[in-house]
Simulated assay, not measured.
Amino acid sequence: MDPDRLIIRRLTRADFPLCRQLVEQAGWNQLDDDWERAIRLEPDGCFVGDLNGVGVATTTCCRFGTTGWIAMVLVDRAARGRGVARELMAHAIAYLRDSGAQTIRLDATPLGLPVYQKLGFRIEFELVRYAGRFPGAAAPERAVRRYADASVMAEIAALDAISAGADRCSFLALLHPAAPPSFYLNRDQSGRLAGFAGFRKGRNAVQIGPVTAVTEAAGAALMADLASAFPGTACFLDIPLANPGAIKWVEARGFERQRGFMRMCLGPEPRDKPEWMWASSGPEKG
């Protein structure tokens, strides 16, 4: 493609109509809140591709310490096959490298997988998106805590850093951009945090995650909390194949596989624990 025809610029809130259009075209789950979160996390790392003066593509970047994350690589159907995604990805990689990222990660759909592999990304592990509705009736909430409790948020961030392989406290604080995020908690007999569960609203379903648990019992208890909070509500969960306990739990309750993602990285592979993930945060932030 003629590089003069594609201009990559910073994404702003004025581009949200384009973002919504691309999300709807792809059938993805994001709302304006997801784009707002991306801008608040990394305002200089969100990009639009203008082809012949018309916005046709997006991507977002953020950094968790020395780990960078790329997401929301969306290209209008009419502009595909013209190298737009490749140019945007090269721009995003350069931005993260210049910002100090040593490792760059993303969750690849089957459509994007060949593009990322050509850029040198390697597959780390596979996740499966499960879609369904929690059975049962609403029950009293048992373990909800608010972000305003800084000590609890510090515990959550510490456990998440082990599970995700990066310090994502900035993301966790913005899980619900319009309000303080709330998490379901599970503690062991000594009072130590054994797991936590978050969620956010989506265009098609509630995105469950991040859900992290150090034991299967803690994970099952957290999932029961979520089932009580969202009975009969359409939900998505992105679960690593490395956590068969989580897969068994959701399949036993009628959730079905919708599609797969490949967690990929460029650079040194992080030390994370996908076996602790009962649901990732989704492709936006891993």
Rank of each mutant, 00 (worst) to 15 (best):
M1K: 06
I8S: 00
L11R: 00
T12F: 13
L18G: 11
C19A: 15
R20Y: 08
Q21T: 15
Q21M: 13
V23G: 04
A26N: 05
D33R: 09
D34H: 11
R37G: 05
R37E: 04
P43C: 02
P43F: 12
D44Q: 12
C46T: 09
V48C: 05
V54C: 00
V54H: 14
T59I: 01
T60Y: 04
G68C: 11
M72T: 03
R77M: 12
R80A: 10
R82I: 00
V84C: 13
H91T: 04
A92E: 14
L96R: 00
S99R: 02
G100Y: 03
T103Y: 01
L106A: 03
A108F: 14
L111I: 10
V115D: 06
Q117C: 07
R129Q: 15
A131R: 14
A131Y: 02
G132N: 05
P135K: 08
P135S: 10
A137V: 15
A138F: 09
A139E: 15
A139I: 09
R142W: 03
R142D: 02
R146T: 14
Y147N: 13
A148L: 07
A150N: 05
V152K: 05
M153F: 14
E155K: 04
D160T: 08
D160S: 09
A164K: 12
G165Q: 03
L172Q: 14
A173S: 11
A173T: 05
P180E: 01
P181Q: 09
S182D: 14
R187Q: 03
S190R: 09
G191A: 08
G191Y: 00
F199D: 08
R203S: 13
R203Q: 15
A205P: 11
Q207C: 08
I208W: 06
G209M: 05
P210D: 12
P210G: 11
A213M: 11
T215I: 13
T215A: 14
G219K: 02
A220L: 10
A221V: 03
D225S: 14
S228Y: 10
G232N: 07
T233D: 00
F236A: 02
D238E: 01
P240I: 10
L241Q: 13
N243P: 10
W249D: 08
E251C: 06
G254L: 07
F255K: 06
E256K: 06
R263C: 07
L266Q: 00
D272R: 08
K273H: 13
K273C: 10
P274V: 07
E275S: 01
E284A: 15
